[in-house]
Design a protein around this nucleic acid. Structure first.
Length: 872
DNA sequence: GGTATCACG
DNA sequence: ACGTACGTGATACCG
């Protein structure tokens, strides 16, 4: 039977993909764009062509026989960017997973391998498709061989048949070589005849057929053209020779060895998950869902016998969505080395045996997202204790840059493929629903099973990276502290919010009509597009900044226009109040539960630095800077009469962390002396005594301090201080000269990030920074700033997390009724009975300040009041 | 679903 | 020369 043979030019396709796609980085720190593009192309080609035989040819080494002819061959070419080089091993792995033969031959290029094999195939009457990004290969076209050249993208292909070449160039495939001989090829540094381009080359070949033909009839040329041709005859012949693909290369593989049987699905999944090709994985799971998974035996249990409850088990509580304070609970699965059980939710709630086991701290539970489970169980008054492993937290500590939205993706990261995504099981959007019991139960069972299976791998990884303590002593205990805080919730005065809302709405209406009258027409003020037209076209104000889509109307831009038109200040006020109404009044009102409280969710495995985040609603960005907004805090009240709110915040924690890590003498001393750090910075930077620091000097120093923490750049500082960039650069320079320890620290942290590929915090939290070695200035600069910022922000996060665990214990130990309610990065918010207040004002700062021992003191400010607003 | 804007540390 | 401050989440547009 005739074969259909696909011959791929590996190097050329990888290059094409690399330059066609943005420089994607997966969270494991590998650049993936070339491999990804190659994969997309391969997938498409396989589907469309259904080949019987396949091979990917690669160039071997740096020099080939062509260099003997012309030593500058491929000279002057930019050397392969490291971001591409590092992808070749993955490309090789990928091709192996497809079970496609790959081949390279010393002293020859991929072209020659392909040319040799395609000739052999032609002799045997087989159909051949050659795929490359390099048009040189079109010389191989024949009645049985088609050459596919990628265009622009990587999946967009131009098919060069003999006819197509004739149409496009008026040449036969072999004349392509003559064309290159005359015009050269700058990418391969083939010289050609200087001054002859594609147009001239085609004209010459149309008349004379070949390079040889041109020179035989050289007398037909005249003037400059003749001179050029005569002077460069040697170059023309050499160029032709260089462009000629060798079709008799000593290729050892036989066409029969190239049979293509389809990919090794399991291996492909492993490679794709290593590369984090999520969309491809999802597609594959969809098509191969039933076939890929190993069978799992599990028992559905409605009457729980004590015998099934062991001393250590994986426990999974399945929930319908991520809003675990409100969503339906769908069942529990237990799994250990031998058995897996699924228990429907009614049976869970009705079983005292199970509840007792769940609450027993001596029974070890291995879970995923134990905080969610703790909080969700609590809604049914089921207590959970003895959590010994948390899959989500473990995976997060191993690499906080990975964004897991689904447990299936976490376990996939560790090579476990047998869990479906929730989207596969429940569907999405309007079609989302709970499936039949059989499907649901298996899904839950597989999750419990996966936790049991993957636990060892994650723990091993944590231990290898010296991160087990961070995980086990910090994040895991914190999960239950946070679970308690979320379940408790914070009381919100609904009437207060509603009243404020009505007031705001009335004000907004007035401002709105004033804006309309100033603009001379009605329009949607909330639409940046419409607002831009009004301001910059109708009213003729200068557009100072542009966005991707049009004029920028951001606050910093409008502020610069404030003197120029009365409408600006009204718009700024409208924006400010509109934000309060929509986000903080209406938004918060929607989130108040039947108990009169708001139950936020603290995301513990989300940020790349180790901070928490807060969602549904976000209680970490309640207004404070402007008085109008700050009033929102009056609605946050204690949950009991005669209780008070207490807020305690770390003073300058990030700069203290910087002082500790950099060991800069002056910075350390300033904190030891309990100086106002911005004033002290100003004194040092401006070389004046502390008493002579002016308000402006302090303001500038404060901005520089922020900049230092963020990973300084002159541009950033110039924006924040609204000064020319040069002045900003001078400030930075003076700062770094005043604090040489900080300068040294910044240099060191960037170089250690380059060496190790990651940076760490005080508690050994890691963040990988693959872009730090990028040749792309922007990516590299960003990574460098991140290298400076993450250890600072992340260590501060470590400290307050530790303080929260200590605080939780302290409240318990002291027998206090006070509740810890919120964390806002550097502050903790409590509610407490009035009679505990005195005790608390002493205890909280003590605990927070001793959370970790640094070489500078930690300082906490604390205040209390009837509402959150009054805690200042 | 992406973009712009703005709230917080 | 390059084009930016670090980390988040919610809302309103608009194609």
């Amino acid at each position: 039977m005739a074969k259909k043979i696909l011959l791929l030019d590996g190097n050329s396709l990888a290059y094409r993909a690399f330059f066609a796609l943005p420089l994607l980085t997966n969270e494991n720190g590998i650049h993936t764009n070339a491999v990804y593009g190659f994969t997309m192309m391969l997938q498409r080609i396989l589907e469309e062509e259904k080949p019987t035989h396949m091979m990917v040819a690669f160039d071997a080494g740096k020099t080939t026989f062509r260099h003997e002819t012309f030593s500058e061959y491929k000279g002057g070419r930019q050397k392969t960017p490291p971001e591409l080089s590092e992808q070749f091993p993955y490309l090789r792995k990928l091709i192996d997973a497809y079970r496609i033969k790959q081949y390279e031959l010393p002293n020859y290029e991929a072209d020659d391998i392909i040319g040799t094999l395609s000739l052999e195939a032609e002799k045997q009457g087989d159909e051949v498709i050659v795929i490359s990004g390099d048009k040189d290969l079109t010389q191989l076209a024949s009645p049985s061989t088609t050459v596919y050249i990628t265009r622009k993208g990587i999946t967009d292909i131009e098919k060069y048949t003999v006819e197509h070449i004739k149409e496009k160039y008026g040449l036969t495939p072999l004349q392509i070589i003559d064309m290159k001989g005359l015009m050269g090829d700058s990418s391969d540094n083939i010289p050609g005849v200087p001054g002859v381009g594609e147009k001239t080359a085609l004209k010459l070949l149309a008349a004379h057929g070949s390079v040889e033909g041109v020179y035989e009839a050289i007398d037909q040329q005249k003037g400059k053209m003749k001179e050029k041709l005569v002077a460069n005859e040697d170059l023309a012949y050499i160029s032709k020779q260089l462009a000629t693909i060798e079709r008799q290369a000593p290729v050892e593989v036989k066409l029969d060895d190239l049979g293509y049987e389809g990919p090794d699905q399991d291996e492909l999944v492993r490679v794709w998950s290593e590369l984090a090709f999520k969309s491809l994985l999802e597609k594959m799971d969809y098509t191969a869902e039933e076939t890929v998974k190993e069978e799992l035996k599990f028992t559905v249990v409605t009457e729980i016998e004590p015998s099934i409850l062991k001393g250590e088990m994986a426990v999974h509580l399945e929930m319908y969505d991520e809003h675990y304070h409100t969503c339906d609970l769908l069942g529990v699965a237990l799994s250990d080395a031998t058995d897996t059980y699924v228990i429907p939710m009614d049976a869970v709630k009705g079983s005292d045996i199970l509840k007792t086991w769940l609450a027993d701290p001596s029974k070890k539970k291995y879970m995923s997202d134990s905080k969610a489970s703790t909080a969700a169980f609590l809604r049914s008054e089921i207590e959970l204790d003895g959590v010994d492993f948390d899959l989500m937290l473990g995976a997060y500590i191993v690499n906080p840059s990975l964004t897991y939205t689904d447990m299936a993706n976490i376990v996939l990261e560790y090579g476990y493929t047998d869990v479906s995504t929730n989207e596969q099981v429940y569907g999405k959007g309007a079609k989302k629903k709970v499936p039949d019991d059989a499907v649901l139960n298996e899904h839950i069972a597989r999750k419990a099973r996966a936790i049991w299976k993957v636990r060892d791998i994650i723990i091993k990884k944590l231990e290898d990276n010296q991160q087990f303590d961070l995980y086990d002593k910090l994040e895991l205990p914190l999960a239950s502290v946070l679970g308690k805080m979320e379940s408790l919730g914070v009381k919100v005065d609904k009437a207060q919010l509603s009243d404020m809302g009505e007031e705001l709405a009335a004000k907004l209406e007035k401002i709105e009509s004033e804006i309309y009258s100033l603009a001379g027409q009605e329009f949607n003020i909330n639409s940046p597009k419409q607002l831009g037209v009004i301001l910059f076209e109708k009213l003729g104000l200068p557009a100072l900044k542009k966005t991707k889509t049009g004029y920028s109307t951001a606050a910093d831009v409008l502020e610069k226009l404030e003197g120029q038109h009365e409408i600006i200040s009204h718009i700024l006020l409208y924006r400010q109040l509109g934000k309060l109404l929509s986000t903080y009044i209406e938004g918060l009102l929607k989130e108040i539960h039947d108990d009169g409280k708001i139950h936020t969710r603290f995301q513990q495995a989300l940020t790349t630095t180790g901070r928490l985040s807060s969602t549904n609603p976000n209680l970490q960005n309640i207004p404070v800077r402007l008085e109008e907004g700050r009033k929102i805090r009056k609605a946050f009240v204690p949950s009991e009469p005669d209780w008070v709110m207490v807020a305690a915040d770390y003073s300058q924690i990030e700069l203290r962390v910087l002082a500790h890590m950099s060991e800069d003498d002056r910075l350390v001393q300033a904190f030891k002396d309990d100086q106002d750090i911005h004033t002290a910075t100003a004194a040092d930077v401006f070389h004046v005594p502390l008493e002579e620091v002016t308000g402006d000097m302090r303001r500038a120093a404060k901005a520089v301090n922020f900049g230092i923490v963020y990973g300084i750049s002159d541009y950033g500082l110039s924006q924040s201080l609204n000064i020319p960039r040069k002045e900003a650069a001078e400030f930075i320079d003076r700062y770094l000269k005043s604090f040489p320890g900080v300068q040294q620290y910044m240099t060191n942290i960037v170089s250690s990030a380059k060496k190790d590929g990651f940076v760490t915090t005080l508690m050994n939290r890691r963040r990988y920074l693959p872009d730090i070695t990028s040749s792309n200035f922007n990516l590299r600069s960003f990574a460098e700033r991140t290298a400076m910022n993450t250890p600072i922000q992340g260590s501060a996060a470590d400290i307050i997390k530790k303080a929260m665990i200590d605080m939780d214990e302290a409240l318990e130990r002291e027998g206090l009724k006070a509740n810890m309610l919120l964390q806002v990065h550097d502050e903790l918010i409590f509610e407490a009975p009035k009679d505990e207040l005195a005790k608390l004002m002493e205890l909280v700062p003590k605990v927070m300040e001793s959370a970790m021992e640094l070489n500078v003191p930690l300082k906490v400010d604390i205040a209390s009041g009837d509402t959150w607003y009054e805690t200042k």
